[in-house]
């Protein structure tokens, strides 16, 4: 564990708290893509299946259980509690285009051809692109509530912070996880456009609006 990874994990935790807080205070899930949130549940379930047979640390265990349960809770909020505030006509990205190719890629590019290993690899690839429905939705509406942008900034910062973590681990432990690194760089890259608008607009007190 190094500082970059810890900060990354804390940013990930923060993103979830921001999202849940937004939904509770506004009593709404407006502007949030149900599809992206559902993909995160799939990501966590396929990646953390090792909870059943591997013990890494208490930290690792608690975080995994938290990510699985909080992502399930968010789906519950969107599907039941605040269902009327979700507009499926804006959330139209086809998730098949993400899930299918990620699964095929996981079958081809993996460390071992084993069920759990392929599921882990699939989860890494899927996480990298799971934000697409959310970004697509914002592209369609051309705007986002400020609190939603804070959620996205924290979520993007999480994977961005894993990059210095991997560099640090390469020099201190000599370990490289090419699948995680390549997917993590792609994942972070997808946020660059968003980060630019976030820093130049939202952090200056302006509304998040995309050019028409």
């Amino acid at each position: 564990m190094n500082i970059f990874r810890l900060l990354g994990d804390l940013a990930h935790l923060a993103s979830i708290f921001i999202l849940v807080h937004k939904m509770h205070t506004t009593r709404s899930c407006r502007g949030i893509s149900f599809k992206t949130q559902a993909l995160y549940v799939l990501v966590f379930l396929t990646r953390y299946i090792d909870l059943l047979y591997t013990w890494i640390s208490l930290y690792n265990f608690v975080m995994k259980v938290f990510f699985i349960s909080s992502s399930g809770y968010i789906l519950y909020l969107m599907k039941y509690r605040f269902r009327p505030t979700h507009d499926p006509s804006l959330d139209t990205f086809k998730v098949e285009y993400l899930v299918g190719p990620c699964f095929v890629l996981a079958l081809i590019f993996n460390y071992r051809f084993e069920v759990t290993e392929i599921l882990w690899t699939f989860s890494i690839y899927l996480e990298a692109v799971a934000i697409f429905p959310q970004l697509f939705m914002m592209q369609r509406t051309g705007e986002a509530e400020t609190i939603t942008t804070h959620y996205l900034a924290a979520l993007g910062a999480y994977r961005a912070l894993y990059i210095p973590n991997w560099i640090y681990r390469y020099f201190t432990e000599g370990t490289v996880d090419p699948i995680a690194v390549v997917a993590g760089i792609v994942q972070t890259g997808l946020y660059l456009d968003f980060f630019y608008v976030y820093v130049t607009k939202v952090l200056q007190g302006q509304k998040f609006e995309l050019p028409a």
Partner: peptide
């Protein structure tokens, strides 16, 4: 060797 990869990250 990534053989029996232990995935210790989240």
């Amino acid at each position: 060797d990534q053989g029996n990869a232990v995935h210790d990250e989240l």
